[in-house]
Design a protein around this nucleic acid. Structure first.
Length: 871
DNA sequence: CTTGGTCTCGTGA
DNA sequence: TTCACGAGA
């Protein structure tokens, strides 16, 4: 558990990184929509249960935002603005909001993100930074080596700050390829000479970053069903800023050169860290409104007016420089829960205080057990926070204490002690039960996690190993994913390809290939519109078996991509009021990359010559020249198309529908828009899709994605079932002990709580290990090895007789073990429930047994033994 | 009484 | 270093 302090990159690397901020769109709403598919496309908001005026809104989907519904509204106000709005309650457990559902969903997303880089920093439940510098650099190299070509079709849903459409930005970059020094004059004025190499590469690298962002978002969508927005920039601050500029389901590049213009009009408070009090002081003490105005102060002045650290930080920020590193963090450093007790709900009596501490402690206990199993770590410190009303003033306090084990009772007791011993007069004079100061806020959190030593018990060891292995595998996976999506990597070893030095040449080569080898594209885009290329040929072979030079083909030239955008734009026009429609003004093709290339062709081949042997270059070059005329023709026809397309929208629309065969390709609701634009991972020629029998959603046909998706259903089913059980259990205990209630806390609510607790323990304990291991659950897996995965070695699992990737086999076997564990836990649960109904008071022994199994260091119970035996 | 519940970080003692 | 507390997202 390295407590990594904040890290920074060197000033000399200020433009070297490519950072992504992925931000889930109205995440809580999406979670609800996924859970209740019938809600999809309808205006929806998530409210926290609170009887006053219909509950407080904490998330609003875009359909509801269109009607003017915002956060900070009450449910009733939302209803007024939008009569048919669906209001989802966040579940209430233990009389307080339970956000576990969203935490789990966030983790599901993070698991996908993780595959793309190990430099993943989770910033909140629905936001994460990814440092993708490595991958970008690799692709730059491959681009230069000719083994990789950009795929502009990945950029359809992408924006660049300062450009009306992404095509303009791409054109700008390609122009610079043709004339590398066009912008240098400006660069020299604006940047330090030492930065020029990075500055010159900046746009291309951000563009590549955007392609990766497209892949990331497509993977998230395909594997979790959730949509997100992303920002692509050279640092965290800018990535975060950019991500917010186009939403939902879009991504935004913030080009270096656009920063000054942007900042001139950018309110200071828009920058992360300047949104609050500090931002206000900055504005006041500097007399500025916009970030750009900060430029008039020297670093020294800023340091003097603010302080040394903030001064130079702001000095940098105003120049778009932020050196803060993306610090890898998947799991939170602390876990806590709290509750407000406003006004009338102030806690004024000792019993009430004990009751609520018990509730909070109970939730903590559940979450800590879960965390322990997942992360093999134990908290060493507990903090209790509270706000007291001391004669009209709110006084906040927090006290901490070391902890060694945490069950509900201990946590609650310790919390109470901390409050008691730190309050001057805890009880009102002469009273045994009345607090001297009413409590308005109560929170318990734990932190200072330490890894549980593996010697402690085998259960821990197993899960620790599990986690470590998973991490390793996912790193490999991320490489595989990237490889898969950048088609041109496949013929990497082909040396003759490597001789082509520019990615222009690559495009041309690719286009040439397209004529020889039939491309799936032609089935996607109607051949008659493709300048009368003969529509032909049998099914394309699976990607893995494709001949190398066919695989090299980038599938779509710029031209095709733009035409594609045209079609999209046409459809978008038809589907009228959709906000998620991409801006898709087609660029002028005369200025296009092809035109440029053709003009510059000879120079390019000259450059190539300089770096390389000559013979192959000449032939390439002549090949390219041979293509020139044809490309001209294509371009010509494309401009025709540009004019014609809007006049026959329905054909292209139908085509598009056919193309993706996604259920909602033309629907204009907010949840289905993705299908139209999700080429990178969803294009049939890249990944085959299968339909989930259960929910009908399209899933990439590879073992991992399938398992992940099924796992999701399985987990849902499990938790549904467990929730039902829990509810029943709660009712039982209520029947058994009707005196236990919130309003009369004098009645000791212990039996009820304990009854709940037993259920709760099982509820949160059981599904988690299952959930994390059921990645390898194969309930519906066929006995045949999936054809699309034939490239990775598979073997048959002796337990369930299904085909499993060899690399996944160890975890798959773990899964079977976990199933057994689940059975045992379930039996244990049945036993405890039985005793509780029989005896009215829950058997504390049974509960403790479970608790200590998962919590403690003692390894002498049945489950632990079970694992020792089976492993 | 009415964004509530979680998190993380920086600062000063 | 650790703790308490506030700020910010």
């Amino acid at each position: 558990m390295s407590n990594s302090t904040r890290a920074f990159v060197g000033m000399q690397n200020k433009y070297d990184r490519v950072v992504l901020l992925v931000d889930m769109d109205c995440f809580f709403c999406q979670v609800e929509e996924k859970q209740q598919p019938e809600y999809q496309g309808k205006p929806l908001a998530v409210v926290q249960y609170n009887p006053w005026r219909g509950g407080g809104i904490i998330a609003v989907n875009y359909a509801a935002r269109a009607k003017g519904v915002t956060r900070h509204m009450r449910g009733d106000e939302a209803k007024e603005l939008c009569h048919d709005i669906i209001l989802c309650q966040v579940p209430n457990i233990r009389e307080k909001a339970d956000t576990g559902k969203y935490r789990d969903a966030g983790k599901e997303v993070a698991n996908v993100l993780q595959r793309f880089t190990n430099l993943l920093e989770r910033a909140s439940v629905d936001e994460a930074y990814l440092d993708i510098t490595e991958t970008v650099n690799q692709r730059v190299e491959q681009l230069q080596a000719g083994s990789f070509a950009l795929k502009p079709q990945e950029l359809v849903n992408c924006h660049a700050v300062g450009y009306d459409n992404i095509g303009d930005y791409v054109n700008k970059i390609t122009n610079r390829f043709a004339n590398p020094y066009v912008d240098d004059e400006r660069y020299m004025l604006a940047y330090d000479p030492n930065d020029l190499p990075a500055v010159r590469q900046s746009d291309l690298r951000l563009l590549i970053g955007a392609c990766i962002a497209g892949e990331v978002r497509a993977a998230v969508k395909a594997e979790t069903g959730y949509e997100c927005s992303a920002g692509i920039a050279h640092n965290k601050i800018l990535a975060k800023l950019a991500a917010g500029m186009n939403k939902p389901n879009k991504q935004t590049i913030l080009p270096l050169a656009e920063i000054p213009a942007l900042f001139d009009q950018l309110p200071v408070g828009k920058i992360k860290g300047l949104g609050g009090k500090f931002g206000e002081t900055v504005c006041e003490t500097l007399g500025v409104k916009f970030l750009g105005q900060v430029l008039k102060y020297s670093e020294k002045e800023l340091q003097r007016k603010l302080d040394e650290k903030n001064g130079s930080w702001l000095h940098n920020i105003a120049r778009g420089i932020d050196l803060e590193a993306v610090t890898p963090r998947f799991y939170s450093k602390s876990i806590g829960c709290c509750k407000k007790f406003p006004g009338r709900n102030n806690i004024t009596g000792l019993k009430t205080l004990q009751h609520w501490l018990g509730e909070l402690a109970s939730e903590m206990n559940d979450r800590l057990e879960k965390d322990f199993i997942e992360n093999n770590r134990k908290a060493k410190q507990m903090v209790v926070q509270y706000v007291q009303d001391v004669d009209g003033q709110e006084v906040a306090s927090s006290r901490s204490t070391p902890i060694n084990h945490y069950d509900q009772e201990t946590l609650a007791k310790q919390a109470l002690e901390l409050i008691r011993t730190n309050t001057k007069t805890f009880l009102r004079a002469g009273s045994e039960a009345a607090l001297n100061n009413a409590i308005k806020f109560l929170g318990i959190s734990v932190g200072k996690f330490e890894t549980a030593s593996s010697a402690q018990n085998s259960l821990q060891t197993m899960f620790a190993n599990q986690a470590a292995k998973k991490r390793r595998i996912s790193v490999e996976d991320s490489e595989r994913v990237i490889e898969k999506s950048s088609l041109a990597q496949k013929p990497q070893k082909q040396t003759e390809e490597a001789k082509m030095k520019s990615f222009f040449a690559n495009y041309l080569q690719a286009h040439k290939d397209e004529q020889n080898v039939k491309d799936n594209l032609e089935t996607n885009v109607n051949p008659s519109e493709m300048n009368a290329k003969p529509a032909t040929e049998p099914e394309e072979p699976p990607a893995e078996t494709r001949p190398p030079n066919a695989a090299l083909s980038p599938k779509k030239s710029f031209f095709e991509a733009y035409k594609r955008k045209l079609i999209d734009a046409t459809v978008a026009e038809e589907s009228s009021d959709d906000k998620a429609t991409p801006t898709a003004t087609p660029p002028e093709f005369k200025e296009s990359f092809f035109a440029n290339y053709l003009q510059q062709q000879k120079e390019v081949s000259k450059n190539v010559e300089q770096k390389n042997e000559s013979a192959a270059d000449n032939s390439d070059s002549s090949d390219m020249q041979g293509l020139a005329a044809e490309l001209d023709e294509i371009e010509l026809s494309s401009t025709n198309l540009q004019q014609q397309a809007p006049e026959r929208p329905s054909t292209s629309k139908r085509k598009l529908e056919h193309e993706n065969s996604m259920k909602a390709a033309t629907s204009n609701d907010f949840t289905s828009t993705y299908a139209e634009y999700a080429q990178p991972e969803l294009r049939a020629d890249l990944i085959r899709l299968v339909k989930c029998d259960e929910c009908g959603v399209q899933i990439p046909d590879d073992v991992k994605a399938l398992q992940t998706h099924r796992d999701h259903h399985y987990a849902q089913q499990l938790s549904r079932q467990l929730r039902v059980e829990q509810r029943e259990e709660m009712q039982r205990s209520r029947l058994n002990d009707t005196t236990a209630s919130v309003v009369s806390p004098t009645t000791k609510p212990v039996p009820a709580k304990k009854g709940k607790k037993v259920g709760g323990t099982a509820v949160t304990t059981v599904p988690k290990p299952i959930n994390s291991i059921t990645k390898f659950l194969a309930p519906k897996q066929s006995l045949e090895p999936p054809p699309s995965c034939s490239n990775s070695p598979m073997e048959i699992c002796a337990e369930c007789k299904t085909y499993i990737k060899t690399v996944d086999m160890p975890e798959h076997l773990d899964f079977h073990m976990a199933k057994k564990l689940q059975r045992e836990l379930n039996q244990l649960e049945v036993r405890t429930i039985n005793t509780s109904t029989n005896k009215k008071t829950t058997s504390p022994a049974a509960k403790k047994q479970l608790n200590s199994t998962l919590n403690s260091t003692a390894a002498n119970n049945s489950i632990t033994k079970f694992f020792t035996q089976s492993s």
